[in-house]
Design a protein around this nucleic acid. Structure first.
Ligand SMILES: [Mn+2]
Ligand SMILES: [Mn+2]
Ligand SMILES: [Zn+2]
Ligand SMILES: [Zn+2]
Lengths: 143, 143
DNA sequence: CGATATAATGAAAATGAATTTCAAAAGCAT
DNA sequence: ATGCTTTTGAAATTCATTTTCATTATATCG
């Protein structure tokens, strides 16, 4: 499925007339090797540790491309850092965000998604994406 | 209900031992006179037009107090500006955000809220707040 | 192949929202 | 009023992100 994502990006790049570069390959490899919800800075540091030459701006630019290509999702929590997570085709999830330890629990709820569609339809609204975050304390942090 | 909010803030201020200042009164008045989801900068400009002396920092600081006092809610959309909206006691709503014209449609859905609680409970998670934003095109912008 | 055109990169500068600093002003208890 | 503490506002600072622009790399074409 890593190969699949690489193909997704290559197809996207081709369709956009983007050139294939060593930097984008490296950043994609490293992004795909991560899990969780990684901040741009975190990814940049990972990238730099094996490829000191790659610059800040390239990482920012490339992650935007990944999001555009549909293989990454931008996540804005309340800490002033943009994060990215993997997009799994045909899947969607939302987040329980613990304000105690910053951990994130993912969940999906088919019923909520359906209700969202109904609400949008009721307003003549065409959904492109949505985000839902529940903030509070995880089981560990509760006491 | 404007008086009620002022009382809410005064009680909050009293309980926190905050001093009552001309600036906070003015900013509260102007905030309460606004509608929609106003950015800090927008509010600052409004404030400054009638009270040129009031500074940027004070507006930022005061809005945080309003949020803490429970009469304003901070909203982060995807435009890099923090916005604030009024909190109506006992009410909650979420947002349909049009990426075409930046308009916002508010909605409430009791069932979704209930499902959120269930999900949280299932994970032993204690909800403090949540946000749900649906992005897309409003009826006007669709075609 | 080269040569040429154009896109991508990266270091550094710029931007912009938000926060901090700190001296002066204002509020409050006595 | 006095003295103590909080608040204010201008300016400086921070910090993430974007932009600039000279250089380098990639793709295309003869
Ligand atoms: Mn996730
Ligand atoms: Mn609203
Ligand atoms: Zn936690
Ligand atoms: Zn619209």
């Amino acid at each position: 499925m890593i190969l699949e994502k690489k193909k997704t990006f290559n197809d996207f790049a081709a369709s956009k007339g983007l050139r294939s570069t060593r930097q984008r390959d490296i950043i994609l490899d490293i992004f795909l090797s991560t899990h969780e919800h990684i901040s741009v800075e975190e990814l940049y540091l990972k990238v730099k540790s094996s490829n000191p030459g790659i610059g800040h701006a390239t990482v920012y630019r490339t992650l935007k491309l990944f999001a555009e290509a549909g293989l990454a999702r931008e996540i804005l929590l309340h800490d002033g850092q943009t994060r990215y997570e993997h997009v799994v085709k045909g899947e969607h999830h939302d987040h329980l965000v613990c304000t105690g330890c910053n951990s994130i629990i993912e969940f999906e709820d088919e019923t909520i998604e359906k209700l969202q569609s109904e609400i949008a339809a009721r307003h003549g609204f065409l959904i492109n994406s949505h985000k839902m975050e529940i903030y509070g304390l995880c089981a560990n942090c509760r006491r």
